[in-house]
Structures are given as structure tokens and as C-alpha cells.
């Protein structure tokens, strides 16, 4: 980590956002949707650090609690997609043959389907909720990780330490769990950061279209709300957007820095990797 200032800066920014998200209830404990019409469209001041919207709702409270919403979904999606992606990649690469073919076709299918549009469809059925969105994005965000893990597993399974383990009678499950998974962990970490940054944008994008969880503060919804007031209240758009940009930039820097730290083998997953999914 010490070798890469990029990773340090990225980690600091990500930690800042995650910290604000974790402590959102302490930093801005008020209900985010309290209407106070006399305070409508106030610019940033000591009382309203980031100003207010057209209904006098405090923007600071909303931006802070928006971090909580965003990071909660990011955390859930990263866990789901990491588990599915690592499992699919390991099985595919380790077994090879027909299993590999089937898994790779599933990967291609999931990658070709635009997540964003499917999310619109699914929120229409199940209602817009943070949990639905987490599961949906989790189940559609794993293919890139699976591809990279598969490629690494393919080369790892020919290595001597795997052959040695097999000679000693280790089962396939043990070899994958003890020898393959630890070796793909750096890649999974880089991918987690990449996925996290995409999820921030997807969550905000859906909320921007009015498909976010209506009971939770969301950066995307704030930006949507700012749209008619661009000429009069710049703060309504600038602050939520900046919060979003800090989160995404932090995670992108972290992914880049970790790639430097772990070496290029983990980097295939980073920006510009082949076959990024269709959002």
C-alpha cells in the first residue's frame, strides 16, 4: 500500500464516504423529508450548511443520509456479486469442459442484458425498494469478476502447488478453498472497488428516474429534484453530485492503486477490461 499514493488517496476518500455513511444517524439525525416552506430555496448558510430545496428540506441531512443509502446498497451488492462471481469463476476454470461452457454462456447472457433497463422493469413489479435493488444489482454485477477469476483459476490449476496438493490426496473442494480462492482474493478486491463505483452510479441513476426507495434519502433523487431549479438554486444539484463524484472517484482510485500494488494480474479487471457489462 505504501508504494501507491493512488491507493492511499482512494482508500482515504472511500473511508471518508463509508465513515459518513456509517455515522449518518449521528451526523445528521433529523428526518430528511421535514418540510419547512418558510426556509425554501435557501443558499448554504450556518443553519443549513448545504442550503435547502424548494420545500425547505435540509440538503445537508439529505446528502449525509444519501451516503448511508448508497453505501448500504454498495455493500450488499459487493458481497452478493463477489460470492457469486468467485464461485462461478472457480468452478468454471477448475472444472473446464461442459461446465465451463455452460457457465461462460450464462456470463455472456447476463453481460448482454442491460442491467439498467431490467432494474426499471423489476422495480415496476416489486416496488422501488433498497432490498430489491441490492439483490437485483448483486445478481447482475458478477460476470466480469467471474471471467477474471476463471482466467486466473485456469493458470493456477496447472501450478505446482496445486499438483502437490492433489498428489497428497486433497479433494477438489479443498484445493479450491485453500489454494485457489486465496490467490484470486486480490483480484476480487480490485473488482469490489470497481463494482462499488458502478453501483453508486446505477443506484443514483435509478433514483434519478424516480425509481429509488421513496422512504430513503438518495443522491440521485436529490439531483432529479434539482432539475427545475438549476437557474435559481445551484446548490441543490452541486452538493449531491459532488458527494457522488467523491465516492465514485475514491473507489476508482482505490481500484487503480490496488492494481499497482498487486501487479498487473489483478489489473485485467480494472477500467478498460474487456467485455465490461452492458448497463
Amino acid at each position: 500500500m505504501g508504494h501507491s499514493p493512488t491507493a492511499v488517496v482512494g482508500l482515504a476518500m472511500t473511508a471518508l464516504v463509508a465513515g459518513v455513511a456509517a455515522l449518518a444517524g449521528r451526523i445528521a439525525p433529523d428526518y430528511p423529508f421535514t418540510v419547512s416552506t418558510p426556509d425554501a430555496l435557501r443558499p448554504p448558510s450556518a443553519r443549513h450548511l448545504l442550503g435547502t430545496d424548494q420545500l425547505g428540506r435540509d440538503l445537508f441531512t439529505n446528502v449525509v443520509q444519501g451516503a448511508h443509502t448508497s453505501m448500504r446498497i454498495v455493500a450488499g451488492v459487493v458481497v452478493i456479486s463477489s460470492v457469486v462471481g468467485i464461485m462461478a469463476g472457480c468452478v468454471s476454470g477448475f472444472r473446464g469442459g461442459l461446465v465451463d461452457d455452460v457457465v461462460m454462456r450464462v456470463v455472456e447472457t447476463v453481460q448482454s442484458v442491460p442491467r439498467f433497463f431490467v432494474a426499471v422493469l423489476v422495480t415496476g413489479w416489486f416496488g422501488a425498494g433498497a432490498r430489491t435493488m441490492t439483490v437485483l444489482l448483486g445478481l447482475t454485477s458478477w460476470p466480469v469478476l467471474a471471467r477474471v477469476v476463471r482466467a486466473e483459476t485456469l493458470s493456477l490449476r496447472e501450478r505446482e502447488f496445486v499438483t502437490a496438493a492433489r498428489t497428497m490426496g486433497a479433494s477438489d473442494l479443498r484445493i479450491v478453498a485453500r489454494h485457489i480462492v486465496p490467490n484470486v482474493a486480490p483480484t476480487a478486491l480490485v473488482m469490489a472497488a470497481v463494482t462499488g463505483s458502478r453501483v453508486v452510479l446505477l443506484e443514483a441513476g435509478l433514483a434519478f428516474l424516480g425509481l429509488g426507495d421513496p422512504n430513503l434519502a438518495s443522491w440521485g433523487a436529490l439531483i432529479n429534484n434539482a432539475q427545475p431549479y438549476l437557474a435559481r438554486a445551484w446548490w441543490m444539484s452541486v452538493f449531491p453530485g459532488a458527494a457522488m463524484a467523491i465516492s465514485v472517484l475514491g473507489m476508482n482510485l482505490l481500484a487503480d492503486g490496488l492494481t499497482d500494488v498487486f501487479g498487473p494480474s489483478a489489473g485485467g479487471a480494472s477500467l478498460g477490461g474487456r467485455s465490461a457489462p452492458a448497463d
Binding site: 443514483a204 439531483i223 438549476l230 444539484s237 449531491p240 453530485g241 463524484a245 472517484l249
Partner: peptide, 28 residues
């Protein structure tokens, strides 16, 4: 890297504020 991290729909609002509403270079 910075630009890659900016959400396009927010960038769109910033562009409208700066280039369409402040200087009337483009329609909003």
C-alpha cells in the same frame, strides 16, 4: 480518471447551468 468518475446526468446539469443558463452558448 476524474471525468470517468463524474456521473453523466450530473455533468449534464452542470453543463446546463454553466453553458446554457449562464452564458447562452447552447440551448438548455
Amino acid at each position: 480518471l476524474l471525468v470517468y468518475s463524474l456521473p453523466a446526468f450530473w455533468l449534464a446539469q452542470l453543463a446546463i447551468m454553466a453553458l446554457a443558463l449562464k452564458v447562452h452558448l447552447f440551448p438548455a
